[in-house]
Amino acid sequence: MDWRAIELSLRLSTLTTLLLLILGLPLASWLAFSRWRWKFFVEAVVALPIILPPTVLGFYVLIAVGPHSPIGQAYMAITGRGLPFSFQGLLVASALYSLPFAVQPFTAAMSTVDRRLIEASWCLGRGWLATFFRITLPLAWPGVLTGVVLSFAHTLGEFGVVLMIGGNLSGITRTISISIYDQVQALDYGAANQTALALLLFSFLVLAITYGLQRRGIAVWPAH
């Protein structure tokens, strides 16, 4: 049982989910409330990682943050390390990969909030930010929770992107799915079975608890 890989996967999933909460909520609220006529382009870009093969995403992330790219070189200048083959690089790739799984439930939930309540809050003098945190978010919290759980579970099972940008370095980028792949190649089926079963049970438990907690249903995909 590869405990380092399990710990690494959990850490990656947690941090990716947090990152997506911080970045995804503003994006989702803009998508939910904006009336810009070209909004659908942004929606398409957000939805892209769902249908894009993970290897394509990983390949482009590698090009975008590799040592020959402006972003990669800037990062190297600041921190002295490269982005690919590091945990931080995985974080970036995972955040992009799980973006639609976080943002779409957020957007769906926020767009079901009654606009009149938000407008009433504005009328009463609360600013936009206060309204967002005191009214919109609490009303949309089942969708936010769905988005958080989905992005966590999705990152846990990530394989193609991690393979492209990770380098399979033990303790750094060897997540649980890579570890299972590695163990199968080493013909160590017993260990692979153990790790895979552990991952399956854990994922099932997380999902069951989450869906049990919020038994009133909410649309996962935006209902326009």
């Binding site: 590698l62 590799g66 040592p67 020959h68 490269g82 690919p84 083959f85 590091s86 380098g167 399979n168 370095l169 033990s170 303790g171 060897r174 590695d182 190649q185 080493a186």
Partner: peptide, 21 residues
């Protein structure tokens, strides 16, 4: 020592992208 196994061609491509082995 931590060993990562793979195909040599893959590693060569990774080295050109700065793989830290």
């Amino acid at each position: 020592i931590n060993v990562t196994y793979g195909s040599s061609g893959n590693f060569f491509a990774q080295f050109q992208n700065g793989a830290p082995f």
